[in-house]
Amino acid sequence: MRYAICFTPPMGDPLSAAAASWLGRSVYSGEAVELPSIAGLAVSEMAFYTAVPRRFGFHAMIMAPFRLRPDMDEAQLLKAMMLFTSGETPFQIDRLEVARLSQCWGLMPEVPSQSMHLLAARVLQALDRFRAPLSEDDIERADPDRLTAPQFTNLHRWGDPHVMDEYRFHMPLTGPLN
């Protein structure tokens, strides 16, 4: 089994309802939601462009999917997460905007959030001890030849190229687009 640490807005939050409508699926119930009607965009096109984020549900990745080390179990991970979160102070990201990150569109802070960046780093530092080392296949899937030097280092140290200084909070709204 694989685990990941993500942010998802609360079930009753208007952002959750808007995202469910856009993606065609509720992240909480898993049930299909009718896609909105958008002039010039067929429902089939919208379903195609949103297929990847719909599959995974509306979220922002904080710690990428990982397998537990053999000497760790889910109960230990959950206990560590509860202990970690009990020491955290809530904060707010003031404004999100639709922006492009690589080949995808998503919601990102209008102004980079230092609080979010630091939280993502703390999560990684606190919970990385639960992550099993990457296999050679895992490393190859990350396509290390396309990574920058810091991303390559992050992949080998943290199991994900897009952490620490390379981290960008984003909530995907589309899959890869040309």
Score class of each variant (00 low, 15 high):
P112K: 13
A126F: 02
F66I: 06
L77A: 08
L119H: 04
E97A: 15
R157W: 08
P53R: 11
P70I: 10
I93R: 10
G30I: 11
R67Q: 10
F56M: 01
M11I: 05
F130V: 09
G175H: 10
D94Q: 14
G106P: 03
L147D: 01
I38G: 00
L119F: 14
A51D: 00
H59S: 04
P176S: 12
L41N: 00
A75T: 13
L68H: 07
E74V: 06
R129E: 07
D73P: 01
S115I: 00
A17V: 11
L124Y: 02
R168G: 01
G30K: 11
L96V: 00
R54I: 10
A142H: 08
D143V: 13
Y49P: 00
R25I: 14
P10S: 08
R146G: 03
M11L: 11
A64H: 12
R122Y: 05
A142F: 09
Q125F: 07
T50H: 02
P36K: 12
A4N: 10
G12T: 13
D71E: 15
L124D: 02
P150W: 06
L96N: 06
M171E: 06
S102L: 14
I62V: 03
G175L: 09
A142W: 04
F169W: 12
D143K: 15
M108K: 12
E74R: 15
A120Q: 15
T153W: 07
S44R: 01
E34H: 04
Y167F: 15
H59A: 06
H117P: 04
D13P: 08
Y167P: 03
S86N: 12
A42I: 03
M81Q: 10
P65K: 10
